[in-house]
Design a protein around this nucleic acid. Structure first.
Lengths: 182, 182
DNA sequence: AGGGCTTGTTTAGTATTTTTAACACTCCTA
DNA sequence: TAGGAGTGTTAAAAATACTAAACAAGCCCT
């Protein structure tokens, strides 16, 4: 009943993949992919999962559809990023402040030497990021690790988490949170 | 792969429906429902849609709050980021690949000299990011601007957009997209 | 023009889902 | 105690998803 074919094909094309390439990555035959994309058959959850997986997507993301938007300016110069933290300790500079219907919160975080968020909980949200400078000790639940420039993270904000700057000087993170619970 | 059985049974029980009653309302046999609920078979999108329909739910709603009961590691070392692009031109390295129910897609993008995405459209999504190295010419709708290290952006992916590396060498972006339908 | 690559489609056969029908069990009630 | 009406599970056929192989069309060579 749901016509997922067009959406799937569009997704694949956007990634610049041929049917055969996607078949190879997903483990599904290219014939099946062709049939699914033209709505000639309704894939099982398992096969659709495999396909979306190879496209870097999830069932949730795939089936989600959002309402409309307004015109605005998409650019945010480094100096225009709005500060929503405490620059003396931890600076949170926000990207996308003026967006009419924000659904994710993107932050440029700067930690001064020794800065520490302490243990934090949030409602149900998800958080991802990458260290771009220095070294950050990240604790999530019972796990702990030091992340250096280029290392990333992704966790459920429901778990208690804590960021601590362990570099001799400033550290920086670029992070994203959804939904934007700020 | 995804074990949707428990969630389905829980949903049905919460509505105080028997397997046969749900079968009647959905048009699916009660045997099939039993098998699906015990993860003995992977339903097609059509049949799952019919079942969820009878339960007053949608595919989106169903997959959105699928419990993430799987243990996972929130850390992603720089070398573990999964490549979903084409390193010769534009590399998209994904943070959060193993997350059980991803709701945002975070990417570390590396553009080789002169790399160009060409004009791209998406359905309804939102995208934010910051240039961390080099210089990127970003076009969104009718607007165009060159972003340097430290500059950010936030736009609606429904608008036609294009990234082009205009630096003499590699450029890098750290970006986030939600929902993860890139 | 003709090979050799790619692309997406079709067809026939295999595997899996889905149905139909029977089985086993509990809880009522006569 | 026996029977009916409810529940969920299993075992057969039937229908459908899926695969493997062949087909057709386009593009780039020389």
């Amino acid at each position: 009943m749901p016509k997922i074919g067009d959406k799937l094909r569009e997704l694949r094309r956007r990634r610049d993949l041929s049917g055969r390439e996607l078949a190879l990555r997903s483990g599904i035959s290219h014939a099946a992919i062709s049939l699914i994309e033209r709505d000639h058959m309704s894939p099982s959850i398992d096969t659709l999962t495999a396909i979306l997986d190879a496209l870097g997507t999830t069932l949730t993301g795939f089936f989600m559809d959002l309402p409309s938007r307004l015109p605005y300016t998409p650019f945010y110069g480094a100096s225009e990023l709005v500060e929503i933290g405490k620059p003396q300790a931890i600076s949170y500079r926000m990207i996308g402040m003026n967006h009419p219907n924000r659904q994710l919160l993107m932050l440029h975080e700067t930690y001064t030497e020794g800065a520490d968020t302490g243990l934090a909980f949030t409602h149900t949200a998800q958080e991802a990021g990458m260290v771009t400078r220095g070294a950050i000790e990240l604790t999530v639940g019972s796990e702990c690790r030091v992340l250096h420039s280029g290392d990333g993270y992704y966790f459920d904000s429901r778990l208690p988490h804590r960021f601590r700057n362990v570099a001799p000087g400033k550290s920086e993170i670029l992070s994203a949170i959804t939904p934007p619970t700020y």
